[in-house]
Amino acid sequence: MTLASMARKYEPRKVTPASERVATSAMIASLAAEGYETVSAPFGHALVDAARKNDKIVGLTADLGKYTDLHIFGQEMPDRYYQMGMAEQLLMSAAAGMAREGFIPFATTYAVFAARRAYDFIAMAIAEENLPVKIVCALPGLTTGYGPSHQATEDLAIFRGLPNMVLIDPCDADDITGMVPQMIAYEGPVYARLLRGKVPSVLRRHKPDYKFQLGMAQMIREGNDVLVISTGIMTMRALDAAEVLAADGVEVAVLHCPTIKPLDLDTIAAEAAKGGRLVVTAENHTVIGGLGEAVATGLMMRGIHPAFRMIGLPDAFLEAGALPTLHDMYGLSVDKVTEQIRSWL
């Protein structure tokens, strides 16, 4: 039996003319700004600000300081920055040990390496002990074209099942800047997805008084036809799609849920119960075990049964390639979000 992927491997490819080429998004590349203003390294700068006020904060990374913006902290506070080397099991264990000694460690790596390689250490050394380790991970979901080795398409599903963990999937620079002090104020373990480099500032353009609040979903845009319940970068895509659909007379509300656990089901249920709207969840994550299933379960448990659809990544190992191509291929681009919602009306 020939595996489909093997067959594809040996098929010759057409060479695209140079003028039409789209480069593979390198893992160091920022998420395309897509018309929004950007903020440089919001996580690194927010952590430096917080650490100036709190000498318990330390930073640890596993050879990805530069690629998680933790190097900003390392440059400002070199004696509080621990380079642990390419050893994620050690990274999480040592962070747990430092937390045991009274520190508040921020441990950074890529989401795939935390969720897959270091899971047992996060589970037993950090979560079971309810220690204040803050795990901050770049390349969430489909934000790199490097293929499955770097695409953390199931990290939220993995960590949702882990007791004590708080999960955050920020949309933009405003969320990231806002979440850092609240992660510190919360006394237990937190897993946060990270956007790094030049990160767009999205939410405040749509809602000027927006402030990240841990554990709370917030309405960013009102609309009477569709309610999109979204998290992470999909809130940005939903807001952009809402503008396109508004031009067609379709009013789309966007409820942003940056905290995946604990999920703000009170707000979600109250909005979903406002009759007549199609409810669509949107997440940069496999449709298995993420926001969509959490919302569906929560609504069923409360006896709320709106028309319901999910936008998210398929249950598959994804292709390598250029990020805009992949976002189109897997339904995360503004065009595809718009198209999907339109098809469901």
């Binding site: 330390v58 264990s93 040592a94 962070a95 040990g97 430092m98 000694e101 050394a125």
Partner: peptide, 15 residues
């Protein structure tokens, strides 16, 4: 698990 946690605690004690 123990030795990795011990490394973190030893670093913390030195701090």
């Amino acid at each position: 698990h123990g030795l990795g946690i011990a490394v973190g605690m030893a670093l913390g004690l030195k701090r």
